[in-house]
Simulated scan of single mutants.
Amino acid sequence: MPVDVVVEKAKLKNPPLDVRRLGDRALRQPAKRVAKVDDEVRLLVRKMLQTMYSEDGIGLAAPQVAVNKQIIIIDVNLEEPTTPPLVMINPTIQGFGEEVVLFEEGCLSIPQVFLEVRRPEVVKVSYRDEMGRPHSILADGIVGRVIQHEIDHLNGVLFVDRAENKIALSQELTSQNFSLSAVRALS
């Protein structure tokens, strides 16, 4: 019988996984594809969900907890206990909409830092769920943005790398004692 990935949307005193912070090498490693979706993967997803809920997050990628696998989880409905999270294994972007929007982002790996990032409004993604079943989704709004943010993590890219306002970037990072040298500007 498969491991159940459903978890209570609650803060745990001691989350099962540690979220890595800006400057940690684990955040910069490209994640490897998951060869087989099995109970080990489902257990990791469960621990990731417990950790994300404990940190008040709405998205988490496996590299953020030092696991080099292409797994992301998303839940923008934290107040809705019956709404299931989105579990994406080996997500692949199939395309983007034409409209690009500027919106503020934050990240569990860079706490208390919030910056505007420009991203496509709509994204189409193919992926496998926690049972290994294939899916495709066309997402916009906050879900589309979080999907793109988390897929960036799988490629070793952080939202601060995409920040266009370098003054705000410097001020935000400095105010939270993060090093500006940990940012990798995207060309």
Rank of each mutant, 00 (worst) to 15 (best):
I93P: 14
R119L: 00
P81C: 15
A185Y: 12
P91A: 10
M88Y: 05
I137P: 01
S187V: 02
P81Y: 11
P111S: 07
Q148L: 09
R25T: 04
L17W: 09
N90T: 03
G97W: 08
H149F: 02
K47N: 12
F159Y: 15
D18G: 01
F114D: 01
F103T: 04
A163T: 08
F114E: 00
M88T: 00
I71Y: 09
I71Q: 07
R119Q: 02
G156F: 15
E172F: 03
S126F: 09
G106N: 10
F159I: 08
E130F: 10
V41W: 06
A61P: 00
E116S: 12
S126D: 10
T82P: 00
V87E: 00
D152S: 05
D24R: 06
I89W: 08
P63T: 08
V146I: 13
V3H: 04
V143M: 14
P81R: 11
A61C: 05
A31D: 04
N90G: 06
E40Y: 06
P91Q: 05
H149A: 02
G57D: 00
N77L: 13
T82G: 05
G95N: 14
Y53K: 06
R20L: 07
S170H: 09
N165H: 05
L158D: 02
V6W: 13
V34T: 08
V125P: 09
D152H: 11
V125I: 12
K13S: 14
Q171T: 06
V143D: 03
Q148P: 11
S187A: 11
K166W: 00
K13W: 13
V125G: 03
D140C: 04
G144Q: 03
N165K: 07
V183W: 14
E105T: 02
V45T: 11
T174V: 12
L22M: 13
F114K: 15
P111L: 09
K9I: 14
N155K: 12
L22H: 04
V76T: 11
F103Y: 15
L138E: 09
P2Q: 09
T51E: 02
L86Q: 06
V41I: 15
L27S: 02
L138K: 15
I73Q: 11
E40P: 02
N165R: 12
P134W: 15
R128D: 00
A139Y: 11
S187Y: 04
N14G: 03
H153D: 01
K11S: 04
